[in-house]
C-alpha cells in the first residue's frame, strides 16, 4: 500500500513516437472582465477630475500663473530649500553621533543618546519650534567659550537671523532623533561577520566604519533617510508659525492680502511636488550607487 499515487502511464509516455505536438495548438489567454470594468470606471473618474481642474474657474489658473514664479515666491522656495538642507545636514550629522553613542559599550553614552532620542521623539515639532523661538527672547545673547568659563565671542539672538537659526536648530534637533534610529538600524543590519573580518585584518577602527560598515548600512539607511528628508522638506511649512518667510508662510501672506486662497495654495503645492520629485530622482541615483556588488 502506498499513500502516493503513481503518475498515470498513458500511451504518450510509453511511446515517444506518439507524443502529441502541442506547438500546433492555439493558446487562449485568460480573460479579466472585472479588471476591464475597473479600468473603465477609473478612467472616467480621472478624466472628470482633469476636466474639472482645467475648466472650473474656481482654480483661477491665471492667478496661479501670475504668482508661480514671482520674486517673493522664488525667495520663499529658496528659504524652504535652505531650511531643509541645514535641517537634514545638521540633523543627520548629530544623528550619526547619537547612533554610535547608542551602539557604544559605554552605559553612560548609551543612556544619554537613548534619553535624547526619547525626549525629541516625544515632543511635537511645533511645540519644540515655538519653544526655541521664544528662547531667543529668554537668552538675548549666545556666548561661545570655555564651558562655565569666560566667553570668547557672542552674538545677539534677536532679529531674523535669530528666528532662522532657531528654526534650523529646532528642525535639526528633531531630525537628529529620527536620523539616529535610522542610522542605528542600518548599522545593525550589517552582518556581524563584516566587522569581525575587518578587525581580523587589522583595519583601523574608523576606517572599518567608513569603508566597511557605513557603505553597507547605506542600503537600508537610504530609503528611510529619503523619507525623512522629504517629510522634513514639507515639515518646514510648520516653521511658518515663527513668521519665517518660507514657502507656506509667504503664500499665506499673499492670499491674506488678495483673498485668492485656492490658486495660491496650488502655487505652494506645485512647488512642493516639483522639489519632492527632484529629491526622489536623486534618491534613485544615490541608491543605485550604494547597491554595488548586490545581486538583489
Amino acid at each position: 500500500m502506498s499513500l502516493t499515487s503513481d503518475p498515470p502511464v498513458g500511451k504518450a509516455a510509453a511511446n515517444g513516437a506518439e507524443r502529441e505536438d502541442y506547438s500546433a495548438l492555439k493558446v487562449v489567454p485568460v480573460r479579466h472582465p472585472w479588471r476591464w470594468a475597473a479600468v473603465v470606471v477609473t478612467a472616467v473618474l480621472v478624466a472628470q477630475f482633469a476636466h474639472g481642474l482645467i475648466t472650473n474657474p474656481g482654480w483661477e489658473w491665471d492667478v496661479f500663473a501670475d504668482f508661480f514664479t514671482t520674486r517673493t515666491i522664488l525667495k520663499a522656495v529658496w528659504i524652504t530649500i535652505q531650511l531643509t538642507f541645514y535641517g537634514t545636514a545638521l540633523g543627520f550629522a548629530l544623528g550619526i553621533v547619537l547612533a554610535f553613542m547608542r551602539l557604544s559599550r559605554s552605559p553612560f553614552l548609551k543612556s544619554v543618546a537613548f534619553t535624547y532620542i526619547w525626549a525629541f521623539r516625544s515632543i511635537p515639532l511645533i511645540v519644540q519650534l515655538l519653544f526655541w523661538f521664544n528662547l531667543t527672547y529668554l537668552y538675548k545673547r549666545l556666548d561661545f567659550g570655555i564651558p562655565f568659563g569666560p566667553g570668547f565671542f557672542s552674538f545677539d539672538t534677536a532679529g531674523l537671523v535669530g528666528a532662522m537659526s532657531a528654526a534650523v536648530l529646532g528642525l535639526a534637533l528633531h531630525q537628529a532623533a529620527y536620523a539616529a534610529e535610522i542610522v542605528r538600524g542600518g548599522v545593525l543590519a550589517v552582518d556581524g561577520g563584516q566587522l569581525e573580518a575587518a578587525a581580523a585584518l587589522g583595519i583601523p577602527r574608523l576606517r572599518q566604519l567608513r569603508r566597511i560598515v557605513l557603505p553597507q548600512a547605506m542600503r537600508s539607511i537610504l530609503p528611510n533617510a529619503a523619507n525623512e528628508v522629504i517629510s522634513l522638506f514639507k515639515g518646514t511649512s510648520i516653521v511658518s508659525v515663527m513668521a519665517i518667510g518660507e514657502l507656506f508662510y509667504q503664500v499665506q501672506v499673499i492670499y491674506g492680502r488678495n483673498g485668492r486662497v485656492v490658486p495660491l495654495l496650488m502655487v505652494a503645492t506645485v512647488w512642493y511636488i516639483i522639489l519632492t520629485t527632484v529629491l526622489s530622482i536623486a534618491q534613485y541615483y544615490v541608491e543605485r550607487h550604494f547597491s554595488r556588488g548586490a545581486t538583489r
Binding site: 552582518d191 561577520g193 563584516q194 573580518a197 566597511i212 553597507q216 554595488r292 556588488g293 548586490a294
Partner: peptide, 8 residues
C-alpha cells in the same frame, strides 16, 4: 562564511 566585503 568567507566574510568577504560584498560592496568591494
Amino acid at each position: 562564511n568567507f566574510n568577504l566585503f560584498p560592496h568591494l
